[in-house]
Design a protein around this nucleic acid. Structure first.
Lengths: 193, 193
DNA sequence: ATCCGCATGTAACCCGTTACATGATTCT
DNA sequence: AGAATCATGTAACGGGTTACATGCGGAT
């Protein structure tokens, strides 16, 4: 069973190997060339994390079949175990904590990307709705704060405006995504029905 | 001189003590009740950081005047030294690295807030302009990536849309802030002239 | 007298960064 | 053969989190 819960980084690595079995180097390149490859993990973070996932029984090395262990190094390709796949799905389905919706927004976006073809459309919609709800709550809090405690100078007010603007953009995006995906889901369901 | 460069956290603590001399507990409460007090530093992070800043000669304890050192504990209020004030100003004036404009956006916002009344309006405007320029570059990169490598599924494209939306919101905010502050600055200059 | 909140501090643990080391494969 | 790249790994270091320890102050 789970000794302790995984790091965000470990969850992401697990998800990537679930999508396509990869070696550490592959994963590094994925982070490097991927859309938002803003984060480039170091070797000292990547390989120990993979060993931890392996020790936890969530991923295993593919193709230990070659009998001769000579030249056994070079290109360890990892793939998820049953437990690993289950853990990944659990992570994808874990609820959006309203309190951390702002801080973990990037992580939620990564989860959203990884949900495709692993979660039924209804679950994805529900995820986006809870994300939107959390964002709306956060925005409401900021508006309330802004109404209650003004007069700290122009810059703090402008910074609050920034927070409001970007979170409203996220909220609008979530609503747009819900509309897009539920529309497509309905179309698929209709064409199949 | 500077033994090593400071952490972002240390820079923020230094800036807060520059704004108003504070004890560790004060700082903790500031993080707790401040607008975006999303981050609540732990005692194990806060107090060692203050000691590091003290050891670096950037802050010092106020009021060691009371001759009796008995009950010398309780409520150590820190204030910046000359070197600390200078270091803070250097940090506020440090250029916006275009490559990290997205990752460090929150930090740049904090810098912006702390610039008020410490930096001349022209420097603030220049800061916002370089921030806007970096954001525009980042947006252009994302648009280019989006045009070049499509067809990875709907979710990745939507996630990219999200990134574009929030960074466009940041860019618009920066332009609005520039307009607001330069307008106000001009008005002040005119009324003074 | 005691309990609770203020206030500072410390130790164990974990993990990421930096920098370096090493072996295999491919190119010239 | 030699150089560059692929590919994995390790050691030192730094700093944050968690959890615990401690002491002072005011309230009942």
């Amino acid at each position: 069973m789970a000794g302790r819960q995984l790091t965000s980084f470990e969850h992401i690595l697990l998800g990537l190997t679930c999508a396509t079995p990869s070696s550490g180097y592959d994963l590094k390149r994925i982070f490097g060339t991927t859309p938002m490859g803003v984060y480039q993990p170091s070797s000292g973070a990547l390989y120990p994390a993979l060993r931890r996932l392996e020790a936890a029984g969530l991923i295993r090395e593919r193709n230990p079949s070659g009998s001769a262990d000579r030249s056994a190094r070079q290109r360890r390709v990892y793939q998820p175990t049953h437990a690993g796949h289950a853990a990944h799905l659990r992570w994808l389905r874990s609820p959006v904590a309203p309190a951390t919706v702002s801080r973990d927004l990037g992580l939620h976006l990564i989860r959203f990307v990884m949900m495709e073809r692993l979660l039924p459309p209804a679950d994805v919609i529900a995820f986006l709705q809870s994300l939107a709800s959390g964002l709306a709550g956060f925005i409401a809090q900021m508006e309330q704060y802004l109404a209650g405690a003004p007069d700290e100078g122009r810059h703090p007010l402008l910074a609050l405006d920034h927070g409001l603007a970007v979170h409203r953009a996220s909220l609008h995006w979530a609503e747009h995504a819900i509309a897009t995906l539920s529309g497509a889901g309905r179309a698929v369901a209709e064409s199949a029905g």
